[in-house]
């Protein structure tokens, strides 16, 4: 128990960060019209592609003779990039459909 508390205490900055970011995420999304649910989901999908940064860091740290890490890391970079690039492009294509038009209600 104490060990867990210590771990949290050592990472207090991160824990603050976590809590505030969760609240921010909830706040940012509320009040979204149903038409935008899917593009928003797709956009959010692209944003979590930021995980590719982690894959790059893994690769930067791997020593050139650690073939296992290199192979797995290489794969991680590819799939991560797929997530980012594919995600943003698909979202853009969806939103392209909502062309700017005089909006009357």
């Amino acid at each position: 128990m104490e060990a867990i508390l210590n771990f949290i205490g050592d990472n207090m900055e991160m824990v603050y960060f976590l809590v505030l970011a969760i609240l921010l995420g909830i706040e940012v999304i509320s009040n979204v019209p149903a038409i935008l649910h899917t593009p928003l989901m797709s956009g959010a999908n692209a944003v979590h592609g930021v995980v590719v940064v982690g894959a790059i860091i893994v690769m930067l740290q791997a020593s050139p003779d650690n073939y296992l890490a290199l192979t797995v890391g290489f794969l991680a970079v590819i799939v991560g990039t797929l997530n980012v690039v594919g995600g943003f492009v698909v979202t853009d294509r969806m939103l392209e459909m909502f062309k700017k038009k005089p909006k009357k209600s």
Binding site: I22, G25, L40, M41, A44, G54
Partner: peptide, 26 residues
């Protein structure tokens, strides 16, 4: 976000947590 925690990488953390919570609400 867990990956971000591992590396102390703030960009991964924000991006991940944001999508985690916003995605749940969505």
């Amino acid at each position: 976000a867990f990956g971000g925690f591992l590396y102390g990488n703030k960009a991964m953390l924000t991006g991940g947590i944001l999508v985690g919570s916003a995605g749940t609400i969505l």
